[in-house]
Amino acid sequence: MESIGVLMMCPMSSYLENELQKRFNLLRFWTCPEKSVFLETHRNSIRAVVGNASAGADAQLISDLPKLEIVSSFSVGLDKIDLGKCKEKGIRVTNTPDVLTEDVADLAIGLILALLRRLCECDRYVRSGKWKTGDFQLTTKFSGKSVGIIGLGRIGTAIAKRAEAFSCPINYYSRTEKRDVGYKYYPTVVELAQNSDILVVACPLTDETRHIVNRQVMDALGAKGVLINIGRGPHVDEQELVKALTQGRLGGAALDVFEQEPHVPEELFGLDNVVLLPHVGSGTVETRNAMADLVVGNLEAHFSGKSLLTPVV
């Protein structure tokens, strides 16, 4: 397999790089200065692309690589991969489902607690020495607050289970009502927001879910409500979010994802009622290694003619 060209789109895990290098002819796309020259040189040797949530395989790349057989993504979401084009050309696509479900759900609960109990602000307060001269303000209780989840898939369900242990009533919105879950279903996101203290975005990004959290939803959530986004940046109308937060129409927001990563609206930097993370939903050593193993496992299975571990297309 050492002759097989594997194009890695951006740095994502040094462990993954090592594992790929051991097995394949690893080409690091981010290290070459002239992308078009690079693609021209390697167009006949590249048979696999490894992408992630920020860099995948768009239509242009797919048409530039005539020998491409498989796109193995180091992510759950596949919004950076042109799935239609892949299907059309018979290119296989894999992702890394399940392994990061727990991490994302853990982070969602961590963000809720960080936001309501103002843990980041507490930490800044102590580090700045202000505690010596005054009392910290009261924070907001989490236990018992109603949690509304957009998208009750694997991650949404894992969040619901965790929030249940905090005695939180769970509401959800999804395309279809799910029987046997025991949570309250709302047929629109606005109704879900109206009836929840905490709104968590946990659905995949599609054309239908782009800006699913718009101004109307933010206003329905209200000045005491908080928004948690561990999905994708474009789920939320970011400009409206900044306005709602700065005008006090929304209680707070904890965001792991943004519309133009790694760019974050600077208006948010001065706010105490936001928590801002650099897209680390699956950012743990354990999970990144498990994801890397899946990426490598899918490529090995494909090139040795076995069935894929986690196929999407």
């Binding site: 853990d106 982070l107 961590g110 960080a114 843990l119 980041c120 989490f142 801002l276 680390v280």
Partner: peptide
């Protein structure tokens, strides 16, 4: 629990 998740996931440092 909040402190536990925030330490392990480095949330304040990430912020």
């Amino acid at each position: 629990v909040g402190l536990l998740i925030n330490v392990l996931r480095r949330i304040p440092a990430a912020d």
